[in-house]
Nucleic acid binder design. Structure first.
Length: 570
DNA sequence: GCCGTTTTCGGCCCGACTGTTTTCAGTCG
């Protein structure tokens, strides 16, 4: 059990309390406590078991008691009681646009509705419109939102949303009423999936805001909300929130609309403590705005180091910025090796030389090639004979392409029992081994954990590949005991891969951040099957930045000589 | 539900927009 699970419990209780109509500040306190506990460095489950629960700001007697009960008995009476009053279906209803706890409660209390399905039916029968506080418009909006939720759950992959946004930018570029525009929100922070895109727009001098707003409105296939400074619409299915701002409030606005909400809340709290007020228009002492040349000045004026957008998740970055202890986070230019690439030998589309030359052209100094192993027959996995042929070709190329270096590895299937896919004498001939689970993805947590632990114990394993097997928004990964697996990685000096494919981005940045704390090295793996796949490295760098990783934490930043040493030491 | 040396009770971040209302509550970010 880990802190994440305790946090999830407190979050659940908070949601149920909101829906039960309790004092919203109680729910807020629980949310706050959940967040603090999630980022707490030590395992609070174990500490509670030992009756050594530490003093944590925001976690008082009542919440400690909830945790104690849950740790000792595996349940929470508080939550059970709430569940009796609040049906599960109501939680789902909160996902509907324009529907919050108060409205859900009204829908439930007055119409006896407990699921989204029933709500949809009630809307079609026009019963919602007759309810106090609701009307024809809210009924129509709720129906629309149910429809939307049913089709794509309202989520987009980071890169899908980026493609839509780039399309919008090319339109804004050529519009005469717009002076500048920029990306904010969760996309700027580099979240792996997003619900919307936030775009700031500054109209040209002398152009009234309404004119720019009118143009932006014409881009939407559906308008969700439209005012003089804010426009929400749907473009190619993605919700896009435009904010029309004046140039003078740009520094405060870009900070404000980049978020996250939690980050901004903390920031405004600091401003308040200093006798200042922070909003999207500026930083004020009384009525007087402090001069801000850029976003950096917002932080500077609050006594903080500049915080990169990827770090603004309310996960300790503000405390670190105050102590001047923020890490020097990874940049794309730090990457020197392309690790986890497939060639024509298995299911890639390029020959090895083409891949190597593309790496050289990009400025990389080495390529770590890893085709599929023999069990992955569907992907052209290599029998031993082919593997040895490949080895010869790589030796030839290494002579030819000096000082560039190709390392010969394999992406070995991790078999059901945790064994790797070749005997030791074959594995021993390779420079490195990535172990990945490709089949039997539906194991129970315990079995999956044992499988991973066995693989990690194998002295030939260098890197553990796409750890959970998940595909974002389409396939949930299998569950495993993260603490146990990470402890084993640290103990056996096995590198944890962050798979950079935008459909995977596996594991999450939160897990990588924890891995770093435990002394585990991270390898960014584009899992490329052609040269275009090299581009996915940028998603990995983005996630590494979110995880607070520095150059020293990432295998891909090593020179060929250093990598050679690293593989040999293993 | 939590917190505090200006507080042990009364606050808890802030503003825009919508829809249902005759002045504002609820939602959102």
């Amino acid at each position: 059990m880990d802190n994440k699970e305790i946090a999830a419990l407190l979050n659940d209780i908070a949601v149920y309390k909101e829906l039960a109509g309790e004092n919203p500040f109680k729910a807020r306190a629980l949310y706050q406590a959940a967040r603090t506990i999630e980022m707490y460095p030590d395992n609070l489950y174990d500490l509670m078991k030992k009756d050594a629960f530490p003093k944590i700001k925001g976690v008082g007697e009542t919440i400690q008691e909830i945790i104690r009960e849950w740790v000792m008995t595996g349940m929470s009476e508080e939550l059970e009681k709430l569940k009796e009053v609040v049906p599960d279906g109501l939680i789902e209803m909160l996902k509907l646009q324009g529907v919050g706890p108060k409205k859900v409660k009204a829908i439930h209390d007055k119409l006896g509705i407990t699921t989204i399905g029933e709500l949809e039916y009630a809307c079609r029968e026009n019963r919602l419109a007759l309810l106090d506080g609701f009307g024809v418009k809210s009924q129509a909006n709720i129906l629309k939102s149910i429809e939307f939720l049913k089709t794509n759950k309202g989520n987009f992959l980071y890169y899908e949303a980026r493609v839509i946004v780039e399309g919008i930018f090319s339109l804004l570029e050529s519009n005469k009423s717009i002076y500048k525009y920029t990306l904010a929100g969760s996309l700027r922070r580099g979240k792996k999936t997003v619900k919307d895109a936030d775009i700031l727009v500054v109209p040209k001098e002398g152009v009234p805001g309404e004119e720019a707003a009118g143009y932006l409105k014409s881009l939407g296939e559906e308008i969700i909300a439209a005012g003089p400074t804010k426009l929400s619409c749907r473009i190619n299915g993605l919700q896009v929130d435009f904010r029309i701002i004046e140039e003078k409030s740009y520094p405060a606005a870009i900070q404000y609309f980049t978020g996250s909400k939690v980050h901004n809340t903390q920031l405004r709290g600091i401003a308040k403590d200093m006798g200042l007020k922070l909003n999207e228009y500026g930083l004020y002492r009384g009525e007087d705005p402090l001069p801000l040349a850029g976003e950096e000045d917002v932080y500077k004026n609050l006594g903080l180091e500049y915080i990169e957008p990827e770090l603004r998740e309310g996960d300790g970055e503000i405390e670190a910025a105050r102590d001047k202890s923020l890490p020097d986070i990874l940049e794309e230019k730090d990457i020197r090796s392309m690790i986890h690439v497939h060639s024509k030998y298995s299911d890639g589309t390029c020959d090895i030389k083409t891949l190597a030359e593309a790496c050289i052209k990009t400025g990389y100094s080495s390529l770590c090639l890893s085709d599929h192993s023999k069990t992955a027959s569907y992907a052209g996995g290599l029998p031993v004979k082919r593997l040895l042929e490949q080895s010869e070709e790589i030796q030839r190329l290494n002579e030819e392409l000096k000082p560039f270096r190709i390392f010969h590895g394999i992406e070995s299937d991790i078999l059901s029992n945790g064994d790797l896919d070749y005997p030791d004498d074959v594995l021993g001939k390779l420079d490195f081994v990535i172990g990945s689970v490709h089949f039997k993805l539906n194991m129970e947590r315990e079995e999956a954990t044992t499988r991973l632990l066995n693989a990690i114990k194998n002295p030939f394993l260098t890197i553990l590949g796409h750890i959970s097997g998940r595909l974002l928004l389409s396939r949930e990964g299998y569950k495993y005991d993260e603490d146990a697996v990470f402890e084993a990685l640290a103990k056996h000096h096995v590198v944890l891969e962050h798979n950079c494919n935008p459909y995977r981005l596996d594991p999450d940045w939160e897990a990588m951040k924890k891995a770093k704390r435990m002394g585990i090295k991270i390898s960014l793996g584009p899992d490329a099957h052609d040269i275009a796949g090299f581009d996915d490295m940028k998603f990995g760098v983005m996630m590494a930045r979110k995880a607070w990783l520095s150059k020293n934490d990432v295998l891909n930043t090593l020179s060929p000589e250093e990598l050679d040493g690293f593989f040999k030491d293993k």
